[in-house]
Write a protein that binds this DNA or RNA. Structure first.
Length: 754
DNA sequence: AGCACGCCGACT
DNA sequence: GTCGGCGTGCTC
């Protein structure tokens, strides 16, 4: 009997501790999945090392070692360990989030799809033997001969349906020991039936692209290279630089590569680009994939069958053993931050993983995050610039239309008559109407952006002023006209649209706060002959709905594409020569220190969709604050100017990137408990501050109620990550919250404070 | 997170 | 008399 060892196991539970089990056999290597008894049931966990039974009454046995080699390669296990510390999250919870869901959930149905295949079993009978065997079984003989004619086995279904053998014939052969029916794992192909990509386009790199590529390739031979920030204006051909790097890393050196893109930029266009160059060597990790498809792609990477992973955030954890390059496209994008535990930032982890595994790291953007921009100034990142468009096309001209001006005015120029007219500003200013008409006449395309979905962002009673609110959150409900429903965009609560005010019974209700659905209606009325498509989360329900809409735009079956920020990223349509921003101020006044940065980014990104090829692009930005520096800088395509101003704005009060920030949120269904919990945490923290770490708050969160929970928060601010991390780790482990349903969440390096 | 153990109201 | 509400505490 094998000697028993004690193993320490991390479980995917919100517990900052591991559990000790015994195992008859040798110690499985760290990262191996095991099935263990836990309470009354069974759970999947990960071996993290040798255990210690001191002080334990009972040590229960490991029920099953689930794999011969760890599902988590050593490099990823180390990364997980770092994440657990930095993001103050239990290791088991981190590990679960790095792996496909089926691997950490014992109750999940078997995710592996199989098919039954009939295979010959040696030895093959000689002719004399066959006479005996098949004397009274001619169909069995035919079936055996059919199988001999094919190389591998033949799928049972095919044998029955196409070759018309009865199942009893196959069973007869099985009984005689001549064939076996085996289940073979079938890897699902997410691209099935979606057409093969064409050959890569042939063109030469611009001098700037060549220079950037050369710098990246030479870094491949450096012992430890710094991360690169590739700052390239929209349309400057950053993707081609990534591809050149990948060709060297994957094709020439046989190493692996990871490309991260924001989820909404994971368009068919982007995917096609990589598949054109690398064909089936690319695993695309998409949110539209089923759990099974995702798992299959993961296994293809794990086995080395594929060496390139392209995907959103979690693709960073692609199980590749020898990563040579990690690319983070649109590195400024907020979707790289995970909003649930572990609340990691994939861009920051990309830098870390690349450094640990000796990979070249490239962060690309036309509008870099201020964190990365500052890192280039500090000498922590190396800056590469692509200052011009790859096609040689000039950047579009950007023009501002002042929505405060009278409807009949001509825009920002000239004196503005006081008093401004009352009532809402027009959806489409005369200037924008004129520009759209011109596009329709010239058979060009236009994009209209409004970063707010639905028809109206709130409904207000004209008599008593009541605004309809979500019953679970402290936000107004958005009116969706087509569905005739009111929706909460935070908790997804919905209710029928009211006919009268629920408070006073008034029937006159005002639909305020313009959304894309309303713009669609206004635009359709104003341009009755135009072919219009709208793209936002409400129109992209189906798995490929996204692709369908973009396909129509690409084939020039759409004149006007209208939508939210999801149309601002990564799209490349040569026919688009006009971009209109319906209202640039949406989001600008949110109580969030990144509001200006986001506005600048969105305007710059969407402006970049215009005039990408020969024809000159034009951008018209409608706003009520034309003098705001975000808008002014976007108008001049001046990222450095914007960054300089914004960095100065964040000096006082001190905000990232000048300081490190953690947001501690305490929530409860009881408003008193939430406040008491936050105050309790603050009291606990106060004597442990000092030195480098400061506290701001506590105070109610900007959205003080969400999903039926009242929320308070406090900030911890420090100039270095280390001291901040120590305080947070102690808070989460040692501080006891008041009894009752009170939860405390730590968000390090938050991207949104609502 | 779950899930069992543990003390107080409306039912067969 | 019991079923069951969810408060508290523990999980190798």
């Amino acid at each position: 009997v094998a000697p028993a060892v004690l193993v320490e196991v991390a479980l995917p539970l919100p517990l900052f501790r591991t559990f000790t089990y015994r195992h008859d056999g040798s110690l499985p290597s760290p990262g191996t999945r095991v099935l263990v008894p836990f309470r009354t049931g069974k759970r999947i966990g990960w071996v993290v090392g040798r255990g210690d039974a001191a002080g334990l009454d009972e040590v229960r046995p490991v029920l099953e070692v689930l794999e011969g080699e760890p599902s988590v390669p050593p490099c990823l296990l180390e990364l997980a360990d770092w994440m657990a510390g930095y993001y103050v999250t239990p290791l088991g919870v981190v590990l679960r989030s790095l792996l496909p869901a089926p691997l950490s959930d014992a109750s999940r149905a078997p995710p592996v799809r199989t098919r039954k295949v009939v295979r010959l079993l040696p030895p093959v009978p000689d002719l004399a033997r066959r006479e005996v065997l098949f004397a009274r079984a001619p169909r069995q003989r035919e079936c055996l001969e059919r199988l001999e004619a094919v190389e591998e086995g033949r799928e049972l279904r095919v044998l029955l349906e196409e070759d018309r053998f009865a199942r009893s014939v196959v069973s007869g052969l099985e009984e005689k020991g001549l064939v076996e029916v085996v289940e073979v794992e079938l890897l699902r192909d997410p691209f099935q039936g979606r057409g093969a990509p064409g050959p890569p386009p042939r063109f030469s790199l611009t001098p700037a692209q060549s220079g950037a590529t050369a710098a990246l390739l030479s870094a491949l031979d450096e012992e430890a290279s710094l991360p690169f920030l590739l700052h390239g204006v929209t349309g400057s051909g950053k993707t081609q630089v990534y591809i050149e790097l990948l060709r060297e890393v994957v094709e020439a050196r046989g190493r692996g590569a990871i490309v991260l893109v924001p989820e909404i930029a994971l368009t068919p266009q982007t995917v096609r680009r990589f598949r054109a160059w690398f064909g089936d060597g690319v695993a695309v990790l998409h949110s539209a994939l089923s759990e099974g498809e995702r798992y299959d792609e993961w296994r293809r990477l794990r086995s080395g069958e594929k060496r390139i992973a392209v995907g959103a955030r979690s693709a960073l954890f692609a199980p590749l053993e020898d990563v040579g390059a990690i690319v983070v496209d649109e590195e400024h994008d907020g979707s790289y931050k995970q909003s649930e535990a572990p609340r990691y930032h994939a861009r920051d982890l990309a830098v870390l993983r690349a450094r640990r595994e000796g990979a070249v790291c490239v962060l690309g953007s036309a509008t870099p995050s201020l964190e990365s921009w500052r890192n280039t100034a500090l000498g922590k990142f190396r800056l590469l610039s692509l200052p011009e468009r790859a096609t040689g096309a000039p950047l579009p001209s950007v023009e501002v239309v002042d929505l405060r001006a009278p409807r009949t005015g001509t825009g920002a120029d000239g004196p503005r008559p006081l008093p401004a007219p009352s009532g809402p500003p027009p959806v489409l200013s005369p200037r924008l109407v004129e520009a759209v008409e011109e596009r329709l006449r010239r058979e060009e395309q236009a994009i209209l952006l409004l970063n707010r979905r639905g028809y109206a962002s709130f409904v207000q009673c004209r008599a008593c002023g009541e605004v309809l609110q979500c019953p679970h959150c402290s936000v107004s409900l958005t009116y969706h006209r087509r569905r005739s429903r009111l929706l909460c965009h935070h908790c997804r609560h919905e209710e029928g649209a009211p006919e009268r005010c629920p408070r006073c019974g008034e029937v006159e209700l005002a639909y305020r706060g313009l959304g894309t659905e309303q713009v669609e209606r206004v635009v359709a009325e104003r341009f009755p002959t135009a072919r219009i498509a709208r793209m936002d989360v409400d129109t992209t329900g189906g798995k490929w709905a996204h692709a369908e809409i973009l396909g129509r735009v690409e084939r020039r079956e759409v004149d006007l594409l209208l939508g939210t920020q999801m149309i601002a990223k990564g799209l490349d349509f040569p026919g688009v020569t006009l971009v209109g921003v319906i209202n640039a101020d949406v989001g600008l006044h949110l109580p969030d220190f990144r509001a200006s940065e986001r506005t600048f980014q969105l305007l710059s990104q969407v402006a970049g969709r215009a005039g990408r090829e020969r024809r000159k692009g034009e951008v018209i930005v409608q706003t009520r604050v034309p003098e705001h520096y975000s808008i002014q800088a976007a108008l001049r395509h001046d990222f450095p100017g914007f960054a300089r101003r914004e960095l100065a704005e964040r000096e006082e009060p001190r905000y990232p990137p000048h300081v490190r920030l953690a947001n501690v949120v305490v929530s409860s269904p009881d408003p008193e408990l939430a406040a008491a919990g936050a105050e309790g945490a603050a009291r606990w923290l106060r004597p442990r501050l000092g030195g480098d770490v400061e506290m701001v708050g506590p105070a109610p969160c900007p959205i003080e109620r969400l999903h039926r929970r009242w929320r308070w928060h406090l900030f911890l601010r420090a100039s270095s990550a280390g001291a901040l991390g120590r305080v947070l780790a102690e808070l989460v482990r040692m501080h006891r919250l008041p009894p009752g349903d009170v939860r405390l969440v730590v968000d390090r390096d938050p991207v949104a404070l609502l």
